[in-house]
Design a protein around this nucleic acid. Structure first.
Lengths: 342, 342
DNA sequence: TTGAAAGCGATACCAG
DNA sequence: CTGGTATCGCTTTCAA
């Protein structure tokens, strides 16, 4: 697999020479603002660029222009459908704006997140989107806020998905309201006693959903009898349900897992425990990730327009609309995992 | 949401001045190769940098050093678990090497892929990883190869996942062998007549898996009685199974979908058609994405170490091992969707 | 319009 | 070791 000797990439200089014009003219013809170059020259430059297969060096442009065309995106876990859908939205929107997305994963570690923000700042991205879940007790929260503030003070734009807990732009998810609506819907279906699988305490998203759910139940006179708090993952959901089973599920009619990934794991735990989800005990989740249509029974959940959220976060950060008007379309989707109860 | 007036970012120049040393010394203290700066100076520079919250401009470094720290990754669809797992692997490996990942989605469009490669080339990434599925009939294949060759001729490194169909490095997936092994395993379980849901003709990955499967069956004296070729997506799988049902499923004992996402859709189509997967007809997939453990019945499939594939692609491109020895651990995983047949 | 030349932020060679 | 300076690739005044 030996290659040709590496020759330097074609530069604008080469193109200019090949076209017989000055560097400045070549620059203008290729990337300069509109209409300022004689058509004949313009043609020659474009032809030369094509002939040489010229590709402008974005780093050089960035440094000369003082601004990049990069978007930095931070998620907790790329393989998690919640984040990958959001990422898909960000990438799509970025693409439609001619921006390039740089992606990093915090692996749910706040320290790592801070390091990543520092590292990513070196790129001088136009915007930074933080989708990784925030925690209340986060010790590095202050340092993160400071870092982001510094970034914004030099022209960067930050957008959070969910709650920033600080003064940054954010796409606010209706976690609490969604939880509440779900609770009401379940009560309306005839359920009265519930358990919840909640994700480690302190994870804002999980706490909000749970708080909303609890509030919804209480407003309807129903009760949340038990809460377990395993990891915020599929296996966490599985373990959480196992624990509920071990502690005795009698009296519990429905279990709410604060996200779909966990709910799906919880359903498997039920099955492995010899119980039938939707029959022996109802299950509901949150997010409406694609797979929940394909599990059995299909999962009742709260739909979040994840891809749209990603796009919107970018728009918001860029300062175009996104912020205004239309709230996110959050809605309860009732499926077979929570059949109406006689 | 008004901000402070935007001031320019801190530059190395500022740090040098603040520390009372020359630009060159500051550079060396901060990023220069090992041990060349007096400790006292070094300390002062580091302190100044910290005080000013200095963040080196990567674009400037790139242009001065003549090399970036960027990895460009192209996938077909970020939200597809197959690609998001691979992406997670690439990002993780990149991270451990201090590299930054730029990601783009081809949306399964070859023209777009070419454009993206062109655009991404402007970043002068150290390596480019192409994971988007190749097609045989791809009209822009030549142009893509040319573009990539140009990229490599200036020092870039390209790595494909699956088959490049050209002279580039690649992480070769055992699609054919996996299909074959699956076929044999199913025959060993007692199945004799099969149908397949194959993904549009020309998609190399799909074709290879199918060809392997067919070969495996034939070597065991079983037959592939029917093949449908819908889209390479969940909905494609659903539609494919619907078609099989409409055409009459009698005589078909098992259905092989060339990837798990399709298989999962296919199972839902069975259910919606009043049939029970694993009982009325067995189903098998390919990839072993996380969700297949949680569908009912759990899906028999061919496991591909997706995250590992991502890491390996990067290593391969960077020229460290990855290539050598150990083939990818591809193995048939039999689950409840293909129970042993009397 | 066009071209010459001054940056942009950082690196690295070359003297001292 | 340290500092001065040329240089990287491109944009953008400033004159012509």
């Amino acid at each position: 697999m030996e290659r040709d000797p590496v020759r330097a990439a074609v530069t604008l200089h080469d193109v200019a020479r090949e076209a017989g014009v000055s560097l400045a003219t070549a620059s203008r013809a290729l990337n300069g603002s509109t209409r300022k170059v004689n058509d004949a020259y313009r043609e020659r430059v474009l032809a030369a660029a094509a002939r040489l297969n010229y590709s402008p060096n974005l780093s050089a442009q960035a440094i000369a222009r003082g601004t990049t065309t990069t978007v930095a995106l931070l998620v907790a876990d790329i393989a998690d459908p919640y984040f990958s859908q959001i990422a898909a939205g960000v990438v799509r929107e970025a693409d439609s704006q001619g921006l390039i997305v740089t992606m990093a994963a915090t692996e749910r570690d706040a320290e790592r997140e801070l390091e990543l923000v520092r590292a990513l700042r070196g790129q001088r991205p136009r915007v930074m989107i933080l989708a990784a879940s925030r925690r209340d007790d986060d010790p590095s929260a202050e340092a993160l806020a400071a870092e982001l503030a510094a970034y914004e003070s030099t022209g960067g734009r930050v957008a959070f998905i969910s709650e920033s807990g600080a003064a940054f732009r954010e796409v606010r998810l209706e976690n609490r309201a969604g939880g509440e609506a779900l609770a009401r819907a379940l009560v309306a279906l005839g359920y009265r006693s519930f358990a919840a699988i909640g994700g480690a305490e302190g994870i804002r998203t999980a706490d909000d959903r749970l708080a909303g759910f609890r509030a919804g139940l209480e407003s309807e006179g129903a009760t949340l009898d038990r809460v377990v708090r395993p990891d915020f993952t599929r296996d966490g959901g599985y373990a959480g349900m196992q624990q509920l089973i071990a502690d005795g599920l009698e009296g519990i009619e429905a279990v709410f897992a604060v996200n779909d990934v966990m709910a799906v794991g919880a359903m498997s735990a039920l099955r492995d425990g010899g119980l039938v989800p939707g029959v022996d005990v109802a299950v509901a989740g949150f997010d409406d990730i694609p797979t929940v249509r394909d599990v059995t029974p299909a999962l009742t959940t709260v739909r979040l327009p994840l891809e749209e959220i990603g796009r919107r976060a970018l728009q918001l950060a860029l300062g175009e609309a996104g912020d205004d008007g239309t709230p996110l379309a959050t809605e309860v989707v009732v499926r077979a995992s929570t059949p109406a109860r006689g």
